[in-house]
Amino acid sequence: MKFSLLSTLSAALLFSAAATPTPAQTPSATGPTHNVILVHGAWANGASWSKVIPLLEAKGLNVVAVELPLTSLEDDVATVKRAIAIEDGPVLLVGHSYGGVVITEAGNDPKVSGLVYVAAFAPGDNGSINQLSQGGTPPPGIAELRPDAQGFLKLTQKGVSEDFAQDLTAAEKANITATQGPTNAKVLNGTITTAAWHQKPTWYVVSANDRMIPPDAERAMAKAMHAETITLPSSHVAMLSHPAPVAALIEKAAASTGSAK
């Protein structure tokens, strides 16, 4: 059994090496966008897209929700880049919260046709979350972050219930509290190189009742990117409290893209 397993793994690795395109062969973002990669934020996981995924798949889109390690911006961008490399055509990246920072960097990949931000950070060149947050009053949810001895932050139950997901059911709040991804504090200083939104079309969902990112800051970031914007009467997790309009915007973005600007 052990020999069989090793043989199977070796064959798979050889196939992968043969099938992976070299840089010269890597396809660019041309043709209609069929692939959507969903990138969760801090204190979350891929399940945060659970209500949006079936709506997008019902429209015939190929959907992948990545699982970020939340250990550093570099690690998280690498995770998304691996997901992009696997797809066979143009890719639309969708980022929630901190996931917006990740797609702002990973979106420079030539296969990426567009970027959708859902209550997300959208830093400019050489920007970070801490840089975007300078000078403003911290939103209420920030006071509910608790560090551990290894430098990872978690949200308290109160923070989830009152600031992160206040418009979800009690059961959903409990699930988010129990399954949240601990996030290394250094992601807040993770600095991107070049903001992909300078070259790629963008869309933005503003959460009007957000208590993790100030709604005015979301509007300002959307305006800076010249993003097509919708505003929802939502908590920070608009994709869970208002999945239909979020999915509709993603579908619209996919239909509108195919070639990078």
Rank of each mutant, 00 (worst) to 15 (best):
R146M: 10
P182C: 09
R211Y: 03
A149L: 10
T156N: 04
T191K: 15
W203N: 04
F152R: 14
D163R: 07
L188Y: 13
P182F: 11
G151L: 11
I192R: 13
N184Y: 05
A178R: 15
P147N: 05
E144W: 06
P214H: 03
E162Y: 06
G159H: 10
V205Y: 03
M212E: 10
A195Q: 09
V160P: 03
T191W: 01
E162Q: 15
D210Y: 11
Q157R: 15
L153G: 02
N189E: 13
L188P: 01
I192A: 08
F152Q: 02
W203T: 03
L153M: 15
Q150A: 15
A178T: 10
D210F: 10
I213N: 01
Q180P: 07
A185F: 13
A174R: 12
G151K: 11
A195K: 12
A195T: 12
N209P: 00
E162F: 08
V206A: 03
F164Y: 15
N189Y: 04
A171L: 08
N189W: 01
A149C: 00
N209H: 12
Q180N: 09
A185L: 14
D167L: 14
T191P: 00
V205P: 02
W197P: 05
L188N: 12
Y204H: 07
T179L: 11
W197S: 05
K154L: 02
N209C: 00
P201I: 05
T156M: 06
E144C: 08
S161T: 14
Q157C: 00
T202D: 02
V205C: 04
Q150C: 00
T193V: 10
I176Q: 09
V205I: 14
L155W: 04
G159P: 06
D148V: 12
P201D: 01
D210E: 07
Y204N: 01
L153K: 10
T183F: 08
S207T: 04
T191I: 12
A178Q: 14
L155C: 04
N175W: 13
T183W: 08
W203H: 06
S161G: 01
K173R: 15
K173A: 03
H198E: 01
D167C: 01
D148F: 13
D148G: 10
Q199E: 07
T193A: 14
A165Q: 08
A149G: 02
R146A: 08
K158S: 06
T194I: 12
L168M: 10
I192V: 14
L145G: 01
W203A: 03
T191V: 15
A143N: 12
T169G: 14
A185G: 09
L188H: 03
Q157L: 06
A170I: 09
N189T: 09
A143L: 10
I192G: 11
I176D: 03
M212R: 02
K186N: 15
A208L: 06
T194Y: 06
V205E: 00
